[in-house]
Design a protein around this nucleic acid. Structure first.
Length: 636
DNA sequence: CAGCCTTTGAAGTAG
DNA sequence: CTACTTCAAAGGCTG
């Protein structure tokens, strides 16, 4: 498939996103014809979300599944409180209508974005702020558009710092979008104007090459390889050159040097590889995340000569163990074995960060600053909501970054596979509780369901309605809701309970909790069967494969009037849930009722903001109103 | 002190 | 092929 922005020829991996984008772009056009930007936005978002799932439609439902009130019986009060609080705060602003510039999907990180509070940056980090932003994919002629974008989106002071968490996610992110045409021009940044993303893009060997001058000083020649490294090779694709040979020449993104919150993007232990900049590195003692895995003999550098941030060597611990071992072991065999183990352990190439992770990395500091939350769990929840609230472009940025990360990672560690880590963990350290947990959940979930409004700990339900399994039995697996099929929480069950699937957002702005509703709304079982009826609803999913699915566009469903963000969000969220949910997405709002089961409507309502969220089953009917706008749309 | 929590997405494994 | 599982970041909290 053609890639959106030419991707610089990177089709390595995640074409999914690109494809989606393209599709989305098409959709956008259509939308623009008769829809408001907002609608478009929602549409886009949904599509974006689904994008990643393009390859796997089925997987799409995952979101919905996940959404269900995320409360586990073990959830701590404190955490809960903090989460709720955060959620409230955040939700407050979620629905402000975000400006929708409609700029092209060019991934141009903004170095000047006022995102991070000054405090978030370490002095050291600031030192590197002046680094140039890595070249990004630049399409010919993209310049103008970008420029336009830039103009359109000037940073607003408001973004700088806020005590509150409620800025509209998109808004906050907007700052991110303030693109700089720095693609080929070095950008000098003000200390506090650091693009959060910068740290994310970190693969350049410059940092690791011994003797490399600080990035901002731009080395002419790579000391090690002797290869000249032009500051910003015009022809080189943005961040990550595709050809291994060029890798070394990639101008490194600030990222490396500007670890957020004082932490390196890719922590690397000393064993990993040498630090080019003692000073800087010392500060970030462990920068690399990508271990020299695949790296030949001295695992310090990749064959390409570019150390990857993902490289992580075991830790100091190992060293200690190291000494211990050497001193302690008398048996050669054991030593050998241990050494082998050590080697294995030493090289730990981490997985490249996905779009969301990148986003989290970038935004975490901000959220922390704004909300004063420290618990990652809580922050992540917020970020998750914000993520959903992000406009398509915004998300696209991260998808693009993630894609490039993957590509780079691939280039750096051709032989690496996630399996490595997987296996490694299996070997010894990690416990895999997930499975147990989920199973437990499946068993419990019938017994517990989160408190709708408060995201309180699940309430045990003595009556416990039956889950799909119990309800339909194994024979009628097709009738099960997706979550059940996946052994996750039963949507129906939840619905039946009348509990709000959506967690916390108290105020009702619900961007955040979109997930539950959508998926929950329409049990997957019907997905295929009901297709005919629900096709219209599929639109959302369509984002993924527009061509194949002649569905209505989400925006259509969304409705012409400038749907409130909430609505948009809902629709978007709905759309997000892939697979089964996909159809639902739009449907939900519209005639969900028709297609879905009795309880399902409720679910949709859950997605809605405000009181509706918390309504009890009795209120279910009320849900209709919320979707109204959407419904009208769908009718269209 | 290892692991959990929590999020989304990518990728691996299993059936 | 689908469904499920693990891992990636992060930092406070728990046993």
């Amino acid at each position: 498939m053609p890639q959106l922005n030419g991707g610089g020829g990177d089709d390595l991996g995640a074409n999914d996103e690109m494809i989606s984008f393209k599709d989305e772009g098409e959709q956008e056009e259509k939308i623009s014809e008769n829809s408001s930007a907002e609608r478009d936005l929602a549409d886009v978002k949904s599509s974006l979300v689904n994008e990643s799932e393009t390859n796997q439609n089925s997987s799409s439902d995952s979101e919905a599944e996940r959404r269900p009130p995320p409360r586990s019986e073990t959830f701590r009060d404190k955490t809960r409180e903090s989460l709720e609080e955060a959620a409230k705060r955040q939700d407050g602003g979620l629905f402000k209508s975000p400006p929708y510039p409609g700029y092209p999907f060019i991934m141009i990180p903004d170095l000047t974005s006022p995102y991070l509070p000054n405090g978030s940056l370490s002095p050291t980090a600031r030192t590197y702020l002046q680094m140039k932003w890595p070249l990004l994919d630049v399409q010919p002629g993209g310049l103008q558009s970008r420029q336009a974008l830039k103009d359109a989106r000037s940073p607003s002071p408001a973004h700088i710092v806020g005590p509150f968490c409620w800025e509209f996610p998109g808004q906050s992110d907007l700052s991110l979008h303030q693109f700089h045409l720095s693609n080929k021009v070095p950008v000098v940044q003000h200390p506090h104007h650091v693009h959060p993303l910068t740290p994310l893009i970190t693969y350049s060997n410059e940092h690791f090459t011994p003797g490399n001058p600080p990035p901002h000083l731009q080395t002419d020649v790579d000391p090690k390889t002797g290869i000249p490294r032009p500051p910003h090779p015009p022809d080189i694709s943005p961040y990550y050159p595709l050809s291994p040979g060029t890798v070394g020449q990639i101008p490194h993104p600030l990222g490396w040097l500007v670890p957020q919150q004082g932490q390196p993007v890719y922590p690397i232990t000393t064993g990993g590889f040498r630090h080019p900049y003692p000073t800087a590195l010392t500060v970030n003692a462990s920068m690399s995340r990508f271990p020299p895995h695949m790296v030949p003999p001295h695992h310090s550098l990749h064959t390409t000569g570019i150390p990857h941030p993902a490289i992580v060597t075991p830790n100091v611990k190992q060293e200690s163990t190291h000494s211990d071992i050497s001193s302690l072991n008398s048996s050669k065999q054991t030593d050998a074995k241990k050494e082998e183990e050590k080697k294995k352990q030493q090289v730990h190439i981490k997985k490249p960060l996905n779009a969301f992770m990148l986003y989290m990395k970038e935004m975490r500091a901000k959220v922390v600053a704004e909300c004063t939350l420290k618990e990652s769990a809580a922050i992540n929840q917020i970020l998750g909501r914000r993520w959903h609230a992000l406009s398509r472009e915004e998300q696209a940025k991260y998808y693009e970054l993630a894609r490039k990360e993957r590509q780079l990672h691939m280039q750096l560690y051709p032989g690496w596979s996630a399996r490595d880590n997987y296996a490694a963990n299996q070997q010894g350290k990690r416990k895999k509780r997930k499975r147990e947990k989920q199973q437990a959940e499946s068993n419990e979930h019938r017994e517990y369901f989160p408190n709708p409004c408060l995201s309180l700990p699940p309430i045990t339900d003595a009556n416990t309605p039956k889950k799909c399994r119990a309800l339909f039995g194994l024979d009628q697996l097709s009738l099960w809701c997706k979550p059940c099929r996946r052994k996750k929480k039963c949507i129906r069950y939840i619905q039946g309970e009348g509990s709000c699937a959506s967690p916390p957002s108290t105020d009702g702005s619900l961007l955040d909790s979109p997930p539950p509703s959508p998926s929950s709304v329409v049990p997957s079982p019907s997905s295929k069967e009901s297709k005919p009826q629900t096709e219209q609803m599929q639109p959302l999913s369509l984002t993924m494969k527009p061509a194949h699915q002649p569905l209505h566009h989400p925006h259509l469903l969304a409705g012409p009037q400038p749907p409130s963000l909430v609505q948009l969000e809902n629709s978007a969220s709905a759309s997000k849930t892939p697979g089964a949910s996909s159809h639902n997405g739009a449907l939900e709002h519209g005639d969900v009722s028709s297609s879905r089961q009795p309880g399902s409507s409720v679910a949709s309502s859950m997605a809605r903001p405000s009181a509706s969220l918390c309504h009890s089953h009795s209120l279910l009917p009320s849900t209709a109103p919320q979707p109204l706008s959407l419904v009208t749309k769908s009718i269209e």
